[in-house]
Amino acid sequence: MNQRRRFSFSLYQTHVKLLAFDLNSLNQTSSSDSVSFSRKGYAVSCTEIVGVVVFRDLKPNRFLKFSVDDGTACVGCILWLNHLTSSYFASRHHQDVRILGDMATHFAAQIRVGIVVRVRGKLSSYRGMVQITVSDVVVEDDPNAEILHWLDSMRLAMKCYDLSPTPT
């Protein structure tokens, strides 16, 4: 297995810290039932962003849509709240689904316009735009958290995500 492929696998399993402008310009490849994402030839599936919540639209027991602005662009996020009614979770253990549902409800209650959040989740696509299907949310109280995330994202891009594969 060459370097590129090994690196690609490790990025695929990682919550890559990308700035929103970078996230919005990921390459999307659609198949009949799914969309996959890549950046500079490397497959990516999960991400972590930090930014200000600038939009919030709650549909109780269905979903919370919100938008995060990190100063470079806005990214749409969706937090599903339909764990107890969705067929997606039907095959999973009821107690686990209830815990996931409770967590999602807790996250949704925390998200307000004007706060800074750290969002982790899976990349998805909505009307051709990159969207994050949220798995967890942390409210950042440190006023420097967003700045540190910018620096972290730039460092990772230059030292890790942008690295060219080593020819074998």
Partner: peptide
Amino acid sequence: RVGRNVDGIDLNLYHQS
């Protein structure tokens, strides 16, 4: 349309970043 208090922000770090 959005506002927040950022007391404690390191403005030098902010401007350099």
